[in-house]
Design a protein around this nucleic acid. Structure first.
Lengths: 220, 220
DNA sequence: CCTAATAAATGAATGGCATTCATTTTGTGG
DNA sequence: CCACAAAATGAATGCCATTCATTTATTAGG
């Protein structure tokens, strides 16, 4: 081994004695990369470099970058806390789950456009969440045929709201055009606090409205 | 294809007698390209080809592809119908606007991640919509400081739902893992009709819940 | 224990992409 | 009329995901 100081001791071609890669190693490296460089930094080259491997080696384990993204997705989904559905009353459980869900995906916004149209097949963490949520609805007396639409509606709101968290401070600044839109401009001025606060406020408003409205639908 | 005559009569270098490009021409070509090839097909090369111009020529008019996307965005936003806010009662106006909004963006899902965090500065069509919506809320007796959060909440739901429209038929198919998640699998089976129908059903459920819930908040 | 098949690595392409730049030509303002 | 700005071409550039031939090691079968 490296007597020479070994700048980056090259590995010669050929299968190494013990495997250097696996789905888990790749997924972990991808998550670390995303955490430090964001989704822009997630390239197959960067991933390979972090794993001290040639980029082409990744393709012995993953079919494509899309597949790596799918692995990341399921791992991220596992961070969503749905435990409240096992214990708390329905509205409290929905509230707790939704806030956790939004928080997790606010840090992974680029995944949303992928995840929202990705079949859950082969994503056990995702399925575990849906199972627990479904059970929570059933236990609260929901008719089975109303559950999936309600979950989808909540998820849609959560995904949309996750984008909002990343919005810049001046998202509603109309600039020089302001005077042409006086009512809107005035309403925007009434927002207090930071963008994070505004996003939280909008999320609260929407989530509480959904909870109220859904409850009313199922009661009626 | 046709005869061999004049394959693509090359234009020689140098400024042409009359300009071949403009913001409007580029935007229209981009929209046409998106309509026929989707967002994958929207490349600077393809755009240039459609405009019968070299790719580098585009950069005399647009700073980047991102800028072209911003032009497209405002054009797309202009298709959203918010006219109901001028005449109809509040809930009917919200309903009409939201359905139109979702419909427009279902065909432009890749724009959502851009638009959701893009300042409205310099986007007159977008501002016009916000102004009309704000006026509709005010006319319905909403307190000014509650309007923006409510609009943001509705928009979040609309954006999230627009993704859902493009979801594949088998999005909730758990495959071989099915038996491990019996409640969820059973609930999914109760969905009738196509994915489009399911998406519509979820949108109806969520939108009506939001309308009910928001009305309750402002009344209370 | 040998051997054939398979798995997993390297490194050198490939082709597509957005973008830049030198160059050429033309329109325009002083 | 002339200098400069504007708008085109075409040839790079560099990054990216992905493929392929090649090499080496492990493993399964006889």
């Amino acid at each position: 081994m490296g007597s020479v100081g070994a700048p980056v001791s090259r590995r010669r071609a050929g299968r190494p004695p013990r495997g250097l890669l696996s789905r888990d190693l790749i997924t972990d490296a991808a998550l670390a990369l995303i955490a430090s460089q964001g989704y822009e930094g997630l390239t197959m080259s960067a991933l390979a470099q972090r794993l001290r491997v040639a980029p082409s080696a990744l393709y012995n384990h993953a079919e494509s970058k899309q597949e790596v993204l799918r692995w990341v997705e399921d791992e991220v989904m596992a961070k969503v806390d749905f435990s409240a559905f096992a214990a708390a009353p329905w509205d409290e459980a929905v509230r707790s789950w939704a806030w956790s869900y939004r928080g997790v995906f606010a840090a992974h916004a680029p995944l949303i456009s992928v995840i929202a149209i990705l079949p859950v097949t082969g994503a056990p963490e995702t399925l575990a969440m849906y199972e627990a949520v479904t059970k929570g609805f059933l236990d609260a007396g929901w008719p089975a045929d109303r559950i999936i639409p309600a979950i989808v509606a909540l998820e849609s709101f959560i995904f949309g709201s996750a984008f909002d968290v990343a919005a810049p401070e001046d998202i509603f600044e109309s600039g020089s055009l302001g005077p042409d839109y006086p009512l809107f401009t005035a309403a925007v001025r009434l927002r207090g606090g930071s963008q994070a606060d505004s996003a939280d406020a909008a999320f609260t408003v929407g989530l509480e409205a959904l909870i109220t409205g859904l409850k009313a639908q199922v009661a009626g």
